[in-house]
Structure formats: structure tokens, C-alpha cells
Amino acid sequence: MNELSLLDSLFGNDGFMLPGYRETVCAPKVDVVQKKDSYILYMDLPGKTEKDVDITLKNDVLTVASVENTNDSDEKKEKTDSEYYILRERTARRSQFKRSFTLPKDIDADKVNATFKNGILSIEIGRKEDAAERKIAIKSA
């Protein structure tokens, strides 16, 4: 263990590495807010952009997943004797994730909007208006 790996214990690590793999498995942190006319999911995705994420909605299940990124341009840089990595976490591995959320029945699938700003993905899902209560007449038999 080198002294730079002590940073792991100070700052924590949300992902874990499977032996023999170069990908980190992680689950991004999410907040869900219920408003009168919508639900909003806020997902922390530091270092990602809107091009790195896929969002799907099927059968009241919202799925947010990372897009497979095969760009390893940093891997192809030539190594020199005067410079080499002693710790490499930022570009050496890709992190993949997939989160699914079962949504309540009152969602309006036609009113879903997603925005990405400053590493935070926001997904707003509209809610259907409550059906008006109506009185049912009782007929005598």
C-alpha cells in the first residue's frame, strides 16, 4: 500500500472494483421529491454529461443507466521513463450503473422532462389530476 491510497479512507469510495475488471460498480445517490403536480428525481452524476446517460420509462418503471463508453484515449498515451502513474483512479476505469424505480400509478407518462446541470440529473415526472369524486345514485330493486 502506498501513502496515496490513504485518501480512500479519508474520502470514501461509493463504488467497488470486481477483481479482474476495469469497471467500477456504483449506485448514484438519488433524492425523490413529491410535489402537488409532479415527482422529481435528483441524481448525482459527477463527471458525467447528458450523453453518458440513458433514461427509459416502461410499465411505470423508470430506469436510468450509464451508456457504455469505449473511449480509452488516455490508455493509448505512450509511457515514458520520466513519468508514470503511482495511483490512477480518474481515467483508468469506467464506472457503470443502472438504477430502476417503480413509479406510482398516478404518473403521467406524457409529462416527463430531464435536465442535466453541474453533474446533477433532474427528472420531473408529471402526475395525473385526481379524478373528481362523483356521487353514485342507488336504484331501488
Rank of each mutant, 00 (worst) to 15 (best):
S5Y: 09
S5W: 06
S9Y: 15
L10G: 04
F11L: 08
N13F: 13
D14T: 07
P19L: 08
G20R: 06
Y21M: 12
R22W: 08
R22S: 13
T24P: 00
V25P: 01
C26W: 00
D31S: 11
V32K: 14
V33R: 05
K36Q: 04
D37S: 10
D37W: 05
Y42K: 15
M43H: 02
K48N: 09
T49I: 11
T49A: 10
K51N: 15
K51R: 11
T56Q: 09
V61S: 05
L62T: 01
T63K: 03
V67C: 06
N69C: 12
N71Q: 11
D72C: 03
S73C: 01
E75K: 08
T80K: 12
D81S: 06
S82W: 07
S82Q: 02
E83V: 07
E83Y: 06
Y85W: 15
L87C: 02
E89H: 06
T91D: 08
A92Y: 04
R93P: 00
Q96T: 08
K98W: 01
K98A: 02
S100W: 03
T102G: 02
P104R: 04
P104H: 04
P104D: 09
D106N: 15
D108W: 08
D108Q: 07
D110F: 00
N113K: 13
K117Y: 08
I120D: 04
L121F: 12
S122V: 10
E124Q: 14
I125G: 03
I136V: 12
A137W: 05
K139D: 12
